[in-house]
Design a binder for these strands. Sequence first.
DNA 1: TCCATTCGTGAGAGCGCTCTCACAGAGTTG
DNA 2: CAACTCTGTGAGAGCGCTCTCACGAATGGA
Lengths: 335, 335
Amino acid sequence: MSRAPTLEDVARQAGVSRATASRVVNADPRVGADAREAVQAAIAALGYSPNLAARTLVTRRTESIAVVVPESDAMVFTDPFFAGTLHGVNLALSGTRLQMVLVMGQPGEGVDGRMEQYLRGGHTDGAIVVSHHQGDQLWRVLEDTQLPCVFLGRPYSPDAAVPFVDVDNVAGAELATRHLIERGCTRIGTVTGSQDMSAGQDRLAGWRRALAAAGLPDTAVAAADFTRDGGQAATRRLFADHPDLDGLFVASDQMAEEALQVLAAAGRRVPEDVAVVGFDDLELARRTQPPLTTVVNPISAMAERAVAMLLDLLAGQPVETPYILDPRLVVRGTA
Amino acid sequence: MSRAPTLEDVARQAGVSRATASRVVNADPRVGADAREAVQAAIAALGYSPNLAARTLVTRRTESIAVVVPESDAMVFTDPFFAGTLHGVNLALSGTRLQMVLVMGQPGEGVDGRMEQYLRGGHTDGAIVVSHHQGDQLWRVLEDTQLPCVFLGRPYSPDAAVPFVDVDNVAGAELATRHLIERGCTRIGTVTGSQDMSAGQDRLAGWRRALAAAGLPDTAVAAADFTRDGGQAATRRLFADHPDLDGLFVASDQMAEEALQVLAAAGRRVPEDVAVVGFDDLELARRTQPPLTTVVNPISAMAERAVAMLLDLLAGQPVETPYILDPRLVVRGTA
DNA sequence: TCCATTCGTGAGAGCGCTCTCACAGAGTTG
DNA sequence: CAACTCTGTGAGAGCGCTCTCACGAATGGA
């Protein structure tokens, strides 16, 4: 066969018009039983499947949504956050006819690259945007494209008036820090996440708030960037500068795992000498020695929520935004 | 503006015909300088970007390829293999104008679901298929769609005559096991991967081959499925049944990490009492206690290669298939 | 000087589909 | 029984684009 069968072929074979064949394909109820059966038989016989480009051209719907990851480096791949997001999106998309299109930034590619091209090209009905950095002006593109979108995590730019879903990072960090305070820590440090991401900023702010409320000093800060290497180096610096710390809040579990190793290597017992709390509750939190006390970051649930919001947006319904999930502390062995 | 600008609008604004405007958009060299500039100005002024559906309809090219993951459960998300694959594909795709579309199986969805619909709909120019299980009859769909595709990992079904790229899992397992033999182990067990995947089968076969060549028994086998829990349980069973083992080949690093913990909990020293070799060389291999000796599974390189093959296929060029990469042993602390 | 070639451009035919509109025939109402 | 609604169907326009073909003007060799 040189050419894929078209609706025209189906219609001819079934002895009906193209319009009727189209109705059957799209499950339009206003079709007689005879015609319906004839068309269905023809579809089966010819192995017909609709040409989506043609359909999209007229309906202006693509039945797919983009998951946009502006992250340009490899970090996103080692980050379990990423996998959790995809999982949630996929979960939320089952039951719908929508497909997920992963649109990733290329190394060394600006906003003007393929990604923008893709979004502007009307290739998707909507977008979920994750991991939004300070520099990204992506929301501008989305704004003037009018493409319905939901951000996963509060956009860094305060002037980006887009719907988003997030966990309350400030409250989460506060929860973690308060837990350290309640168990008797008085000299509490923190290893921060990237300060060009809202999650990094907020978790630092939450730590500060808890300390301020307790009247404790908030000077033991070591800046990191959510990477393992960064977390390790920051922990070393922190304890070199503040050898007397008895509590540590680390802005992510991956960094916390590194911190635990640094502390172990330095001969400090956890939680006896230093109590440690992480953030995210990744799988690895259950496997550290001792198991990591941490704050649950409900990534998958957030992703599902984001998709639900996007679906509402696509249906023209109003959405509740921002949608902020409450964090929860999981007490394990490290604090 | 109620409607996105079309090529017609651009042409009118630039005072040229639609055909000429189209030529400028597609970088056709046979356009005069005046016309080119006028069109480019019009494009900028109107904020035009081409409608991809319309373009696809006539060119029959979508400029995107599918990464197909038939995996129906959540395992794929916790598996770093998955991230590495996406990383490689993304890397190989930079520099091309192709986009990556992630097509994932839904929980409880058969081959007939959205995924097949999507593939059949001509929504992508080609496909990379990963993690191909025994049950998946996906390649049949791909076969009668005539969609160019490359499998990442040898397809389970021997009658699937599709191009694929893989690491030589048999040789890799052999390498690992021979290493154990060379360091003096004589009672060597294995924790296997899923036997409904070719990687699982081949790694077991390689282990067998090395033992046969050395005249050692190959009876200490515990079946697992590449999951952490499965690996842990299998290790326990294995040492309950064969308490005298002095060497262990585990078919994946994730399972090997669990095995190390089981051994540590049982009070067996690694590598003194039991030497352990894993497979994959994930990041975690560097972090285990002691660091894991393992076989490099060049996931990202494989993915890049698969994309390169797919691009050749799309260009109508012949491809070298199967493309088998050589495994390499990384000796660290556990063996 | 003339014909062949090249170059830049425009006209127009579709790509395969959906969807509006029109219409015939059957059923329903006052 | 006239005036309706309702139901199933077909005709046909048109979505925005590419690409073939045709054509006039400029160029080049004989």
